[in-house]
Amino acid sequence: MNDELLAGRLRDAGAHVTVLEARGRGLHLRARAEMDSLEACALAVREAGLYPVFMTAVHTASGFVLHYRFAAAERDCRVMISSPAGPDGRARSLAPLFPGLQWHEREAIDLFGLLFDNHPDPRPLLLPEEDRGLHPLRKDAGSLKTPEQLGLTARPETGGEAP
């Protein structure tokens, strides 16, 4: 499956996809989806034969934004799918589709206090027992920025919008 076809699949799944210039970034497809369509996007990525690179979150003034990164093994293709988490950090897990994301999501449970509905093993991964509830990567209310201030919303100037 080539990049254009994958971009089409991601759009069919309900994501807003921006095709970025390859130069420097190494990031080719930037998809933004709602939580409802995240699993459909991940299925399209899995069909394209990509492997999971990482999963993480960003704490913004309008809540947590999840980021899933995938890459192709034998060609230059990298995909980032982001999705805002629900209130209180509720999210759907992609670990049932990509077992490799299980530990990354457990790390996000530790560090951000996200709550995954269908995670197969939602225990903390890195922090010790006594640090449950510490969530070190959450930011103070005073230092929170909105996704617009962080440039995390779709910006047409970052790359050509594919037809």
């Binding site: 034969g49 492997y51 093994a73 990509f98």
Partner: peptide
Amino acid sequence: RAYGATGPVLRASGV
């Protein structure tokens, strides 16, 4: 691929 293993571990499997 499912677990995102890379580097020599993946290349030893012929990828």
